[in-house]
Amino acid sequence: METKEYQALVKRRAARSPVVKNCAAAFWCGGLICALGQLLIYLYTLAGMQRRDAGTLTTITLVFIAALLTGIGVFDRIARYAGAGTLLPVTGFANSVVSPAIDNKSEGLILGVGAKIFTVAGPVLLYATLAGVVWGVVYFIITLFV
């Protein structure tokens, strides 16, 4: 069998992930995390915080919960079910920072935890910053003319 033919066979055969089931799980898990976030924002503003500070504190709270669940070894089990439902919210970002930190402790606190903490989340931070700077320069140029 030719390589091309074989590649096509493999591609045709490969079992697909259960899309409908995964999407349903992602929907309700992701929705629930966002609703929890909304509830936290409400509670923090109720306690007298500014809307934007309440938003930041909500992010921090969710990051804390995700870090804790990652630490006790539960997050990856939830994520295996929830998929993008836990990946896309800030919980996924937290998990992608916390998991290499725990994982690389065996190589020490500097070159293990320190150097590897962004192995998974690094791309997100890099491209977010890059896009932000580009937008900043563009906006600066706009302000020169408007």
């Binding site: 697909r16 992930s17 899309v19 995964n22 999407c23 992602a26 929907f27 309700w28 898990c29 992701g30 929705g31 629930l32 995390i33 966002c34 609703a35 976030g37 909304q38 509830l39 409400y42 998929g83 993008a84 439902g85 990946l87 896309l88 919210p89």
Partner: peptide, 21 residues
Amino acid sequence: SLVRAFLVGGVLCVSAQLLID
């Protein structure tokens, strides 16, 4: 507001799930 957060957040996650799958 909770329902809106739930629905919009859920839909966004579904869109990412579709990209994964």
